[in-house]
Amino acid sequence: MGLPSGTFNQGYAQDMAIFRTRTQWVMLFAFLILLFACPLFFGDRILTVLTIIGISIISVHGLNILTGYCNQISMGHAGFMAVGAYTSALLTAKLDFSFWAALPCAALAAGIVGIIFGLPSLRVKGFYLIMATVAAHFIIIWVILQLYGVTGGADGMAVPRPEIGGFVFKSKASYFYLVMAIACLGTFFAKNIVRTRAGRAFIAIRDNELAAEVMGVNLWTYKLQAFFIGCVYAGVAGSLLVHYVAFATTDQFPFMNSVWYLGMLIVGGMGSTMGVIFGAVSLKLLDELVTVVGPILAAAVSPQAASSLGLIMRGLVILLFLIFEPRGLAHRWQMVKSYYRLWPFSH
């Protein structure tokens, strides 16, 4: 970990610390205070955007562990979110489970389904694994639609909002707090998971599967662990999404969302916890910008000409990042930090 000029680690604890200096702690607390003060300053619209960003961050953390760290490219992430979403929806709406009991069940169910669809990763990789995960998405959605009597099929099903001690998370502000608390926890765990033995194994697999195997990394175990952890995050995100809308339908998990989640990783920076946050925030804010700019542009041209602007802009941004900054915004952030840490020295 880079440290400010003149600061040195003098023990194992310091070496392992995520937040090493007082400045970093102050920055963290300032950020958290600002984040959790948002409902005091912002209206429902901004809170909705932030909540959706929070849910995306949780989901993309999972994809980052799976794809960014372990190099198991998944295009079925929205499908795994649907598993978590419907598990939570069914448990709360049909079996009267509390949201707090349903949420871990949703995570677990998505993780198990992830393991099942992760099995091909032991035999195939790269493009072929992508196709296997694409198939996973469509199989999951097909199964949900076929279970009409249970899931409501294409009509979907109403889902109760989370509740604790009689307090219902109905307002935008309350749900914002719920999502952000889970997103912060998810970020903390994601940062730590990749520093564990398993995390190091993921990185070894990503860098060179053969070398990792030769060193004694059990590919079978660790690839499936990556699928499990990645899909657990997806399950939590899916559950939070349907409880937010108070309705579950397969249309909330279109295939294109999986593509955009990968896009967030590209823009943010694969294999970086901060990259996930940068990617989710930047692409979602770009979405908002395009939504507002669309009607203004339409006044000059026509609504049809201004349509698809979102798709074009997102595609263009991903393309530009792939060409000019394949390591994403996280790398740019590292460069800024490096410059600051050496300050006032020029090198």
Partner: peptide, 21 residues
């Protein structure tokens, strides 16, 4: 007043709040 929601559920939620505001 209009917004393009791109048939996207997540997007429609923020648009809804914006137009309500």
């Amino acid at each position: 007043l209009w917004r393009d929601d791109e048939l996207n559920v997540e997007k429609v939620l923020s648009i809804y709040e914006e137009l309500k505001d």
